[in-house]
Computed example of a mutant assay.
Amino acid sequence: MIRVLLADDQALVRGAFAAMLGLESDIEVVAEVSSGDQVVAAARRTNPDVALLDVQMPGLDGLTAAADLRAALPTCRVIVCTTFGRPGYLARAMAAGAAGFVVKDAPPEQLVDAVRRVHLGMRVVDPVLAAESLANGRSPLTDREREVLARAGDGGTVADLARTLRLSEGTVRNHLSAAIGKTGARTRAEAVKVAEDNGWL
């Protein structure tokens, strides 16, 4: 029996996945959580073989939760399942140790197949997204540029960002300027949008 943990902030989606997987004779859903910061605790309680994680959740996002889960429970294989099929998400999911990456609009049988294949030790990646990821390459942003740009997306002045990130205003300006240049944007708002659209944030 393949023991599965589901993490998705949308109860309807989570329930649909649980019902679909529950129809399979060799799969058992052992835990369902609605936020990324509940993943590790639920996994420690239930010891799943496979965790199916959404990307955008409250608390920790699914990519951070994937890395934390791999560190806490290395035997649990992770599949990232998202509505947002962005190449940058794929690269970040693989860097976080995910064994699979599927989009939510894939046919149900593909999701079930992904759970089985990942449990057997294989990698499963949406082929269209894999091709896009190869074509677009890796994120051009450094970790610090990504952090500054992500915070900039919440609004606020350079001084606000500097206080929040505990950096000097000059350093924040430098990181924002570099991020704007690397995304080919004209403004920081445009840079945030480009980075979000590519899954770099």
Rank of each mutant, 00 (worst) to 15 (best):
H175W: 05
D126L: 03
A195N: 12
M122N: 14
A95N: 09
V128D: 15
A152F: 04
L120D: 15
A91P: 02
C81N: 15
L120S: 15
V148F: 05
L6C: 10
F17C: 07
G62R: 13
A65P: 12
I2F: 07
V13N: 03
A130P: 06
V40Q: 05
L63M: 10
G15K: 15
D54V: 04
V103C: 14
R92F: 03
E190S: 13
A71Y: 07
V78Y: 01
L69S: 14
A191E: 02
A71G: 03
G22K: 07
A7Y: 05
G181W: 04
D61E: 14
R77C: 05
L73I: 13
L6T: 07
W200M: 02
L129P: 04
G59K: 03
D126E: 13
A31Q: 13
L60G: 01
A93L: 07
P48N: 14
V30A: 10
I79L: 04
A98Y: 00
V13S: 12
R117K: 12
D105F: 13
A41T: 08
A42E: 08
R92A: 08
L5T: 08
E196W: 01
L73H: 11
G88M: 01
M1A: 13
R123P: 01
R117Q: 07
I180N: 12
E32R: 11
P140R: 12
D37T: 00
G156C: 11
S168R: 09
L12H: 08
F101C: 01
V4S: 08
S177K: 14
A189G: 11
A16P: 14
V102I: 13
N47D: 15
I27Y: 10
E109C: 02
A71L: 10
T164G: 09
G97T: 10
W200Y: 13
D197I: 03
G36S: 05
V55F: 10
A106Y: 12
T164F: 07
V128H: 15
A43F: 06
L201Q: 01
P58A: 11
V29H: 14
L5P: 15
L73D: 06
R173D: 13
L60Q: 06
A18T: 11
I180T: 15
T171M: 10
L141T: 12
P48R: 08
T83Q: 08
A185V: 02
L149T: 00
L23S: 01
A43C: 07
G85R: 04
L52W: 01
K104E: 10
A162V: 09
G137R: 05
G199R: 08
L52C: 10
